[in-house]
């Protein structure tokens, strides 16, 4: 009984940690611009696919990973510079559609370059599953959890200890006031895109050994990440992390104890519950509208 419960819990936490990282990416960009970046999932895809293809070219794994993350970071900056910045006068909905266009475009290019097939990425460490209390975990799961925790800690430090981080926070709270005190909001926005691309690609690389990777893996992970962000209140970093982990655990528990047919439906009804009863999200920030 306990073994079963632990099994569902571990499964949920692993996949939940990935959702949390994607949700953090959404949150970063949403805070800086109120744009829901539908290309977020593509950062994960780029991370995984670039690593696999660089390794295929004979590069050792750590180098391939670093290059893939850099590539994703460049892509994030390019997305903001080439697609979002030129349309800065546009409404938020228009910007959202631009990110949808960008995600389709990136996927289209990836399909041309890397083909449509799924690819295997080796685990970072051993392939032996880890056994804890009768439950079994993929050894890569430990890596996923480790990387997710480190990234979260780094983000917290970044936002509370560095000037740039504080500038991003200030911009997200009040764009005009931030500009008045001399923060270049476009630069902040670019940083937000870059950061969320970096986080996204690292998440994509970390889970690729568990999930395989392909040109269209970003669609599903991106969507689940958005759901997690929505559960957390879309704009709260803590909410994104808790939302992601909760979503993962709910999915696994529903599949294990109730019905695998409706595990996703249960996850989605949680959004409704949160909206109905905790409209600011579980950790949503209070927003005061100015007249």
């Amino acid at each position: 009984m306990l073994a079963e419960f632990l099994q569902y819990l571990f499964t949920g936490i692993t996949i939940g940690a990935t959702y949390a990282l994607v949700a953090l990416g959404f949150t970063l960009i949403y805070n800086a611009s109120h744009v829901i970046n539908f290309a977020q999932g593509e950062f994960l895809m780029i991370g995984g696919m670039a690593t696999v293809s660089l390794m295929g070219m004979g590069l050792p794994m750590p180098i391939a990973i670093i290059l893939a993350v850099i590539l994703a970071g460049i892509l994030g900056v390019a997305l903001q510079r080439l697609a979002i910045a030129p349309a800065r006068q546009a409404s938020v909905v228009t910007l959202i559609i631009i990110t949808i266009g960008a995600s389709i475009f990136i996927r289209g290019v990836a399909q041309l370059v890397w083909g449509k097939e799924y690819h295997v990425m080796p685990s970072f460490g051993s392939d032996q599953p880890v056994r804890i209390g009768g439950a079994v975990m993929h050894s890569q799961s430990i890596w996923v959890l480790l990387i997710a925790s480190i990234l979260v800690v780094l983000l917290v430090l970044f936002f509370t200890r560095t000037l740039i981080g504080k500038a991003i926070l200030a911009t997200s709270m009040n764009k005009d006031a931030a500009r008045l005190v001399g923060i270049r909001t476009q630069l902040v926005l670019m940083l937000a895109f870059m950061l969320s691309a970096l986080i996204g690609s690292m998440a994509g690389i970390a889970v690729a050994p568990i999930t395989f990777t392909s040109y269209d893996i970003g669609i599903m992970l991106g969507l689940k990440g958005f759901v997690a962000a929505a559960m957390g209140g879309l704009g709260s970093g803590v909410g994104a992390v808790v939302g992601g982990i909760t979503l993962g655990i709910v999915e696994a528990m529903t599949a294990g104890y109730i019905s695998s047919d409706y595990k996703d439906a249960v996850a989605f009804s949680m959004i409704l519950l949160v909206l109905f009863f905790m409209p600011r999200g579980m950790f949503g920030s209070r927003v005061v509208e100015r007249v």
């Binding site: 559609i97 631009i98 960008a102 475009f105």
Partner: peptide, 16 residues
């Protein structure tokens, strides 16, 4: 797919 995404993106950038 690539062209569809590109057209959508460019239209919205230049005709917001």
């Amino acid at each position: 797919m690539m062209m569809f995404g590109l057209i959508l993106m460019l239209t919205m950038i230049f005709m917001p």
